[in-house]
Amino acid sequence: MSTSGLEDLYREIILDHYRNPRNRGSMDVPPSQRIEAYNPLCGDEVVVYLLENNGVLEDIKIEGQGCSISQSSASLMSAAVKGKTTEEARKIISDFKKLMSIHESRMEDTKDIDSGNANNSVDSDDTAADGINENEIGSADDAQMDVDLDAMGELAALQGVVRFPVRIKCAILAWNALAEGLDEIEVSADHPGTSK
């Protein structure tokens, strides 16, 4: 990692995706799925539209507003999963979670907050003081080492977020929406091969 955390956080790729978000827009529902993710702590909001056909994410659109990290992460995510199979998309989500040094349980915890059902600190005046703390991401570097950064392409640009624990929530907002969308697709499509 570079010596300046800030430069690591606001890399050029991130700022580019923030200024020129990819796959911006909406789609008709149905046939697409629409999933909202909202961070009540800071007001970040991401809406993901997914159009799946025969197990392939044929199209994805993103709406929403928020900070550079939440919005660039959504844009980077859309570019990464568009045209991929749902299984491939799941793998990308899993890799991204590792990049954020979030173990499965943590992802579930933050998901509660995103769906607005958190029973603590929802109305905190803090931007995002609760949740993930330094101790919980103590194994950050270990978890990140499991990830093949080269294979992640542009997504790897978000790795600097890990050094700013309160911003991890911003980065994973769109990803929680995507994961929820994939769940919905699996349930509604009732594909026999997708159950584990």
């Binding site: 900070c67 550079s68 990290i69 700013f164």
Partner: peptide, 12 residues
């Protein structure tokens, strides 16, 4: 600039 980003840069 989003307030969240502003606060982050200021914190530096």
């Amino acid at each position: 600039i989003h307030p969240h980003d502003l606060a982050q840069v200021l914190d530096e």
